[in-house]
């Protein structure tokens, strides 16, 4: 029998090095699938675990940061407040790679304001919303992303308009917005890798069915519903920076988006015309999907050139936290001169 040699990524790490604690979420939960896709994306991408910072708020989704990359620091904040904590950490140390996990309650209700302002500041992070339209830990109340007409497990019909996280993000000028489905690793993994390569806030609104409270008939966030109604905008391939971009598709059948770090996301056409660097096109496909009750997935919008917060603030490349007295204090001469001025 041949010796088993574990496969490794360019950092020499195996896929197991990207694993975390065993999940405590329900068996079959969409969030667990997303965790697996995150592990694959981080492994494929060769993310250094020591550079990774896992951020989250409160809710089932926010627990997920414990279930991957145990060797990375994690901050499980308070409900809906992960954006603020991430913003502070991001300016303190811009060498870190921030991966945030939130849920629909965390993002679209209690944390809606912070979410909006995170996008305005374009804080460099990946922001995954594990969106199931329902509050799980408190046992099944509707969230703000539930669609009108959607039926709760006990039969209550949601009459309120939905907050479309992806639509809102595009509207607010977010620099990277995608929607995907927890059951579609083929699509989600390249999107995650593109998000990791993007500089700025990359929002991934990932429909993630709740098997305990929102997977029944009448729900628009069930496995069955999403499978039936998913409208995939394009096929996706992530092409890392160091790989030569080989032309292996017939002309006109695909487009490439070059990301901030020089890697590419290749979009294979599937019939629907959509230019993800055109905000109006993004808003149109989102709204059309809403009209036709379809779940539009894929890269909705990207602006690889948008400056992130640290760039706008003109912060040094090295972490602020490492600066000492010499860099931070006025010199005795400057100090004396200032006091004379204040005299």
């Amino acid at each position: 029998m041949a010796a088993v040699t574990a496969k490794t990524n360019p950092l020499g790490l195996s896929r197991d090095d990207y694993k975390g604690l065993a999940t405590t979420l329900c068996a079959g939960c969409g969030h667990n699938s997303i965790t697996n896709h995150i592990v694959k994306a981080l492994y494929d991408h060769g993310v250094d675990p020591y550079r990774l910072a896992k951020m989250s708020g409160i809710g089932c989704s926010s627990k997920a940061t414990a279930y991957f990359v145990e060797r990375a620091h994690a901050f499980n904040a308070v409900h809906g407040r992960m954006p603020a904590v991430t913003t502070g950490a991001a300016v303190a140390n811009r060498e870190l790679l921030f991966l945030g996990i939130s849920g629909d309650g965390d993002t679209a209700s209690i944390g809606l304001g912070q979410f909006c302002h995170l996008l305005r500041r374009n804080v460099d992070c990946t922001y995954i919303v594990e969106n199931n339209g329902v509050y799980g830990l408190t046992k099944g109340q509707f969230s703000a992303t539930a669609d009108p007409g959607s039926v709760q497990r006990k039969g209550t019909v949601n009459q309120l308009e939905t907050i479309d996280i992806a639509g809102l993000a595009v509207q607010l000028g977010a620099s990277f917005v995608a929607r995907s489905f927890s059951g579609d690793g083929q699509q989600l993994v390249p999107l995650l890798r593109a998000a990791l390569s993007h500089r700025g806030t990359a929002v991934l609104d990932v429909i993630s069915p709740c098997v305990a409270f929102n997977d029944h008939e009448g729900s628009t966030k069930s496995y069955h519903y999403v499978k039936e109604h998913e409208l995939v905008l394009h096929g996706l391939d992530f092409i890392p920076q160091q790989t030569e971009v080989a032309v292996d598709y017939a002309e006109g059948t695909s487009t490439d988006v070059e990301l901030h770090d020089g890697s590419h996301l290749r979009l294979r056409k599937l019939g629907r015309e959509h230019d993800p660097q055109d905000r109006l096109s993004a808003l149109r496909v989102i709204d059309e999907g809403r009209q036709s009750a379809e779940v539009v997935t894929g890269l909705l919008y990207v602006n690889p050139a948008a400056p992130d917060l640290c760039t706008m603030e003109n912060l040094p490349q090295s972490p602020l936290r490492d600066l000492g007295e010499a860099e931070l204090r006025l010199t005795p001469d400057q100090f004396a001169a200032l006091l004379r001025e204040w005299q």
Partner: peptide, 13 residues
């Protein structure tokens, strides 16, 4: 929240 995030990451916030 920003102050806590920054303090956690090691900055004087």
């Amino acid at each position: 929240g920003m102050v806590l995030g920054a303090g956690w990451a090691g900055a004087r916030a």
